[in-house]
Amino acid sequence: MSAVSPTSLDAALAALTADTVVLAGGTDLMVEFRTGRTRAENVVDIWRVDELRGIAAEGDGLRLGALTTCAELVRDPLVRERAAILAEAADEVGAEQIKNRATLGGNLGTASPAADLNPVLVALDARVELVSTQGKRELEADAFLRGYRETARRPDELIGAVLIPPPRKRRSAFRKVGTRRAQAISKVVVAATVELEGGVVRSVRAAAGSVAPRTVRLRGLEALVGQQPSADAIAAAVRAVDVTPIDDVRSTAAYRELVLRRVLVTMLGRLCAADE
């Protein structure tokens, strides 16, 4: 085993090599190391890189450091105001002990298909800021999450921050379905945002976890844009959603698909209910 614990962003970036394993809060990786699924070699522990912490307003949006913990997302008033479903999802990630350690950047970097925060980031049109010694670049969360535990991060990059755009008039919702309320890995997890204008859908962005090898943007629902969100229109859009769930120890493919569609119908129905 080997690990270094740099205390500045420059030192952390300088320590990265082609096969570096980046360690943040450890809630996933410490188990991976122990079981041997991930080799505990060439580990760069970024926990003490303070430049990767902090929650700040950016215009009417938010800038969230990669090491922001779930507990911080839950209790931060600015996050609750501008990205309520992110705080809500962070609260349901796991027990208090997990929330105190699990990070936003870790959720993204691990790219588990069952990650609870990632569907929220896609639904909020969040952008992922990647930093390297060469500079910075930004990617949409949806483009960053490429496949099963696979991201667009290059080996010489770290996730620096997550940028959440201003909420505008978007309504949002989050729903996690697990075996129990606390401390369960999702069977199905869904997040959605909807913006209405004059009774017509102006934008829809929804994403789900645990129903495909990666967090999946539910593009089928985006056909609602420009339509009046009648029950029939919502039902048709939900039918057009394409997912590929699997049978595993936590649930079955059939259950996941059924629950996903039912959650979506209810969620979109509520989000599109008559303008206040």
Binding site: S5, G26, M30, W47, A71, Q97, I98, N100, R101
Partner: peptide, 12 residues
């Protein structure tokens, strides 16, 4: 802050 000590490496 409460944590699970099985998930925390001593370097942290």
């Amino acid at each position: 802050e409460a944590v699970n000590s099985c998930l925390v490496p001593v370097c942290q």
